[in-house]
Design a binder for these strands. Structure first.
Length: 593
RNA sequence: GGUUCCGUAGCUCAGUUGGACAGAGCAACAGCCUUCUAAGCUGUGGGUCGCGCGUUCGAAUCGCGCCGGAAUCACCA
């Protein structure tokens, strides 16, 4: 169906043309939604037109309003307030929309066709030396949600993960496990694999600190003591052995990484996220080297006396950047150059999104520039979706102070809170335990996901545990509850036909249709801005509006049968959009709660 | 110090190409369940949109300058 704003814009241009004999560009006509306190659906701002009309704002608006009103049967009324021309859309448009489009399964989404732009999105990218925490949760949820949104806006989306499975940090966990682990495995201890490995990473740090302290007591300077700690030397040695593919080290490495992957797999399943492809740094870390050396040969890069290779980024207002160490080994940047190259070769993406925290803004800025210097035409197709830190009310999470919020613990807590809330409210008493735990999982996870996704990604956010378990107000459970209410009504009204009749819709009904009219634009805007919070806030507005309607008007017990039919059609459409929108956020909706 | 981002109600956040008296939720207070799920709904109070200048018919929104906060500027990843 035709979008009303476009119609208005066209008619407004015609009016300008015929009354004032000038033409304007289409973009010059400002059409926006009418504010709640005024009568009307869409508003044309007439101020920009005054220099053409040479009339007062009121007269200009009046002239144009009359013209549009007469020209289109879809505009049934208008009024002018100050410099604003408010247009009322005829109910038959809203009814048609409800009947023809809102009832469709895929309303708001764009089909993905073979010629659609290809987007590759990398997210999660965990280290294998510790379990996931709250910060990773934001990453994972954002990555998943943005993928869903991009797909809904018609893009071909390829989700990839890059596991950081090598490096000195892994060796640290391995080392302390060898020293103190006494053969402990996930099987023997019952610990989740990633937690087990994380435990030994912490152990390493304790040993290291103790050694540093001892050295300081013996009179060494702090920096010296830190650099010379025996266990650090051992870790370095282990890394060298790893790079040399020492079988013993490799076997241990594979075993412990295996534990971690088992653990991650569970966490990913619980979060409901997945990838088309997982890359491992151990397999890709050498990739960039060749490209860098080629760049050196071509004179794009330069070498220092000690053999290290650098890029000079001073033309771009930046500094020098190291790309290969003097010993010839790769750094982070080297391998990102390599993986970007590899991925482009594999898929010829139209854009590549990296979901990575804002502490790496500089890194990605440099990555694009380096790729450009190396002559890759697609270097400007990389986009860093940079999201803010998650902080606690007390401040930053610090592992040293034990304030890191563990992902698994947090999910447990959210689910048990859902259970507790439900029991207190006396809901779901008669259900089987299996059914109940499924719902509590949905609600608990819904609360967590919504809490994080409703905030603009680029902003730092505060995670207040108290607030996050509040299931009232602007929360996931509020929206899920709205869905469950509608489903409950629909179950009871199965025999009534869903249809629009000839009767007038009341203000609330129109308001609901008008809100749903926005859904396609919300998806597209969220995809453009890579911002799930737009979807989240839209759903909240819709749920809020529905709950008001629900409170004031009975659906099944409306006086006339026609009204019942219309309202059933209406609320059915609402439930479907809630389900669809929540799905874009990676949140499930329960039939009952 | 350079670069990037942020600063809106007591708290957490909306406010998308500049538009009509700045909006929610939480918290506080006062109400609404014999009627489709009260995880809901209604009402009250609460703001110099960090500060200043500028552009404009019009600025929370754009520009400049301050102030405050975060991140980053490694032969770490």
């Amino acid at each position: 169906m035709q979008r009303i704003e476009n119609l208005i814009r066209i008619l407004a241009l015609e009016a300008v043309q015929s009354f004032w004999k000038t033409s304007m560009e289409e973009g010059a006509i400002q059409v926006q939604k009418t504010r709640r306190d005024f009568k009307g659906d869409f508003t044309v701002v007439v101020f920009p037109l005054l220099r053409h009309s040479r009339l007062s704002p009121e007269l200009t608006g009046e002239t144009m309003g009359q013209f549009i009103n007469e020209k289109s049967e879809l505009i049934s009324d208008y009024n002018v307030v100050k410099g604003f021309l408010n247009l009322v859309v005829d109910q038959k448009y809203w009814k048609q929309l409800l009947e023809l489009e809102l009832s469709s399964e895929s309303y708001g989404k764009t089909d993905v066709v073979a010629s659609a732009p290809k987007v590759m999105i990398e997210y999660s990218s965990p280290n294998t030396n510790k379990p996931l925490h709250l910060g990773h949760i934001r990453n994972n949820l954002l990555g998943h949600s943005v993928s869903q949104i991009l797909e809904a806006s018609g893009k071909q989306v390829q989700k990839v993960n890059l596991v950081n499975d090598r490096g000195i940090h892994i060796c640290k966990s391995m080392l302390s496990w060898l020293k103190e682990g006494e053969g402990e495995t996930p099987g023997s201890s019952g610990l989740k694999g990633d937690h087990l490995v994380g435990k030994y990473y912490v152990r390493y740090d304790k040993i290291y600190k103790a050694q540093v302290e001892t050295a300081i007591k013996e009179g060494k300077a702090k920096t010296e003591a830190e650099a010379e700690a025996p266990i650090l030397a051992e870790a370095r040695e282990m890394l060298l052995k790893w790079e040399a593919e020492d079988p013993e080290v490799r076997t241990l490495w594979e075993m412990m990484n295996g534990w971690v992957y088992e653990g991650f797999k569970k966490t990913y399943e619980r979060l409901g996220i997945s990838f088309h492809k997982t890359y491992y740094e151990s397999e890709t870390y050498k990739l960039g080297k060749e490209i860098i050396l080629k760049g050196l040969n071509e004179g794009v890069l330069y070498q220092k006396e000690d053999g290290s290779v650098w890029a000079n980024l001073e033309d771009e207002g930046l500094d020098q950047k190291l790309l290969l160490r003097s010993d010839g080994t790769s750094v982070y940047m080297t391998q990102d150059v390599g993986t970007a190259h590899q991925r482009y070769e594999e898929s010829e993406f139209d854009s590549h999104i990296y979901v990575v925290g804002n502490e790496q803004n500089y890194h990605f800025q440099v990555l694009s520039i380096v790729l450009k210097k190396l002559g890759y035409s697609w270097s400007d197709r990389l986009y860093h979706l940079s999201y803010g830190m998650v902080e606690l009310p007390e401040g930053k999470m610090k592992s040293r102070e034990g304030t890191v919020v563990d992902a698994d613990d947090l999910m447990d807590e959210m689910e048990s809170t859902a259970r507790q809330m439900s029991d207190e409210l006396g809901k779901l008493g008669e259900f089987e335990e299996e059914e109940k735990s499924r719902i509590f999982r949905q609600v608990g996870m819904g609360a967590l996901k919504y809490f994080i996704l409703k905030v603009d990604p680029k902003k730092n956010m505060t995670f207040d545990p108290k607030e996050s378990v509040d299931f009232n107000g602007n929360t996931g459970p509020f929206i899920q509850y709205t869905y469950a209410r509608i489903r409950s009504v629909l179950r009871k009204g199965v025999d009534v036909p869903k249809a629009v009749g000839s009767q007038e819709m009341n203000d609330k009904e129109v308001a609901l249709v008008r809100l749903m009219y926005d859904y396609p634009e919300v998806i597209n805007e969220a995809a453009r801005a890579l911002n799930p919070s737009l979807v989240a806030n839209f759903l909240f507005d819709l749920a809020k509006e529905f709950n008001q309607f629900y409170h004031d008007h009975s659906i099944l017990n409306a006086e006339e049968q026609e009204v019942v039919s219309l309202r059933l059609l209406l609320v059915d459409a609402i439930s479907r959009i809630i389900e669809s929108g929540m799905n874009l956020l990676g949140i499930e909706v329960p039939e009952r709660m």
